[in-house]
Simulated scan of single mutants.
Amino acid sequence: MPKLSLKGNEMPASPIRKLVPFAEKAKSLGKKVYHLNIGQPDIASPKEALDAVKNMDISVLEYSHSAGFESYRKGLSAYYKKNGLDINSDEMIITTGGSEALIFGFMTCFNPGDEIIIPEPFYANYNGFATTAGLKIVPVTAKIEDGFALPPIQDFEKLITAKTKGIVICNPANPTGYLYTKEELAQLKEIVLKHDLFLFADEVYREFCYDNATPHSVMNLTGIDDNVVLIDSVSKRYSMCGARIGALISRNKELMANAMKFAQARLSPPTLAQIASEGALDTPQSYFDEVVDEYVERRNITVDGLNAIEGVICPKPKGAFYCIAQLPVKDAENFCQWLLEDFDYNGETVMMAPASGFYATKGLGSNQVRIAYVLEKKELVKAVKCLEEALKIYPGRI
């Protein structure tokens, strides 16, 4: 048999989905499994998006422009301006999900062997995107005792070498739910200017900010237009994960011209999904207000419930719909597997994502889990109760 590629062997498996076989086995045995492991919202997609597809009047599903439909890009530009971001339609490329936007951005801005600094814990699939582009992720650790705030800027400085070419953040953050402040972004601006780095910001959770918190975008940082790359997506904003429509955005004209070559090579983003995404731009504000109110309640049920369990530490997030919880266990991955294989409470159990998969530094996060509070409130109450009962009898508790 011919040898497979090194890149294929190096591509990391998803820590979010690795326990799926155990969950499937648990279900086959009749257990109810509460899925807190994956950020798939159960909120209905906007009627405006679905109606746009139902009512479309086309006879051929043609290619779109490689940058995406002009009408959608103009509509998206209007959406950004309404939200205080001065982004023009020629400063964006519509992509197949935010994932493709990141891959195009990495391939455009960096060379194989370059290093990018990312605060950890971070969205685990950044590992896969970096591997695709041949990059090395250099982690800078955010601490649970600080609520996962931006690490001190001197910690970034210590990691910068001749190979360092960029910094990547997620704001609000997956997996911690942390929302970066205006002051923290200003600190990043200074280090980006000092070392002439690219600053990538994944802002797909912009609409999910709580307790009257305001999201601050890197696109509003002045004096670094050529350094900033924004990643966006409809997946979470409109509960349209299956649409696979994202955007790569930058005011750096040379960057966008080169990124367009990658966009042309893959031809175009999907037509039907762009129609749905353009329709979603007409979603009324009431939709977002209701969603945010719902997630605040879900967050409070989950996080307050977790913190009421003896030995559990869980900072309350200001955004997104994730939290990281530190558990009184030796090994969170073993605990998560045990929950599915050996435990149930009244025929029910919980599936979570071991947080070690969201850290690049070996050994970190070994007693932590990432939880996505995307279930109905009554189910979250039951899920937290399952965890409480499980921790009372788990053999590996410390």
Rank of each mutant, 00 (worst) to 15 (best):
L4C: 04
S5E: 10
G8F: 04
G8D: 12
E10H: 05
M11E: 07
A13E: 15
P15E: 03
R17G: 00
K18P: 00
A23L: 09
K25E: 15
A26D: 11
K27Q: 13
S28G: 03
K32N: 03
G39A: 08
Q40E: 09
P41E: 09
D42I: 09
D51P: 02
V53D: 12
N55I: 11
I58L: 12
I58D: 01
Y72N: 08
L76T: 04
D86P: 02
N88S: 12
S99Q: 07
F110N: 12
I116V: 15
P119D: 13
Y126G: 02
Y126C: 04
N127A: 09
P139C: 07
P139D: 04
F148T: 04
F148Y: 15
P152E: 02
Q154R: 08
I160A: 01
T164I: 01
K165P: 02
I167N: 00
A173Y: 00
Y180N: 01
T181P: 03
K182E: 14
K182C: 05
F198I: 07
D202A: 01
E203S: 03
F208V: 04
N212M: 10
P215S: 07
H216E: 13
N220A: 08
N227A: 08
S233L: 05
C241G: 02
G242W: 14
A247H: 04
L248T: 07
I249F: 01
A259L: 13
Q264M: 14
L267M: 10
P269E: 06
Q274P: 11
S277A: 15
S277W: 10
E278Y: 11
G279P: 10
L281V: 14
D282I: 06
Q285E: 15
D289G: 04
E294S: 13
N300W: 08
N300D: 15
I301C: 10
I301M: 13
T302M: 14
V303L: 09
V312N: 07
K316S: 10
K318N: 13
A320S: 15
A325E: 08
L327F: 14
N334G: 13
N334A: 15
F335V: 11
W338F: 15
K362L: 14
L364K: 13
R370A: 12
V374P: 00
L375R: 11
E376M: 08
V384I: 15
C386S: 05
L387Y: 01
E389S: 01
K392R: 12
P395D: 08
G396A: 06
I398C: 08
